[in-house]
């Protein structure tokens, strides 16, 4: 079982666009799954690939671009080394996700949906991971980290940036509730 919040790779990388189109029998209804597969293979949607897909399916290029920019999970730029998915759902918000978001943006000079200048992180705030009991929750490279505070989140990411791998100690941090501090 996987534990990723990203588009799961349901298939092995196909031989180019033809393979992906064949996988769905060339069914134009499956345009979005095909694009998901391209992103799973390449990490983003390269322009040439979309162009090829357009020609192969006889679907206007403009329509494919429209879809690529409408759905939030599609990326048109190559992603960074690590992918941060920060939940901005209601519960996470109530428990301070927006402060964590601001801190990450400040700390790593990265905007929502963007990649940090050093190419280390791609930062994707999403609307709800449905893991509300863990709020505030963040997924880094497929691994869930719950009960975060600003410091825990930033420190975790710094460690990842330095070493490349999150350590066991930084997982499931927190115990201290933000609420208990307030008067």
């Amino acid at each position: 079982m996987r534990e990723t919040a990203e588009t799961p790779k349901l298939f092995a990388p196909a031989e180019g666009i033809a393979g992906i189109v064949d996988r769905y029998g060339g069914d134009r209804d499956m345009l979005i799954p095909m694009m998901q597969d391209i992103q799973a293979d390449f990490g983003y949607l390269p322009r040439e690939m979309l162009k090829e897909l357009s020609e192969s399916l006889c679907v206007p290029f403009s329509r494919i671009y429209s879809i690529a920019t409408f759905y939030a999970s599609f990326r048109l730029e190559p992603p960074g080394e690590h992918r941060i998915t920060l939940c901005m759902g209601t519960v996470c918000f109530l428990k301070g996700a927006d402060r964590i978001s601001r801190a990450i943006q400040r700390e790593f000079s990265v905007g929502p949906g963007g990649t940090s200048p050093d190419g280390k992180f791609t930062f994707c705030p999403v609307n709800c991971l449905g893991a509300c009991a863990l709020a505030p929750v963040m997924v880094v490279d497929g691994e869930y980290h719950g009960g975060l505070t600003v410091d825990l989140a930033v420190n975790l990411l710094r460690k990842i940036a330095d070493a490349g791998k999150p350590t066991e100690a930084t997982r499931n941090g927190k115990k201290k509730e933000r609420g208990s501090k307030k008067k």
């Binding site: 588009t7 209804d29 979005i32 799954p33 679907v59 879809i67 409408f70 759905y71 999970s73 599609f74």
Partner: peptide
């Protein structure tokens, strides 16, 4: 079919548009 990150696709007609391979 997997969604692709659009809350509006929970709306029935948008969901069906998405199933047809279009913008939701």
């Amino acid at each position: 079919n997997r969604g692709s990150g659009a809350f509006v696709c929970g709306e029935s007609t948008a969901l069906m548009a998405s199933l047809e391979g279009r913008v939701g």
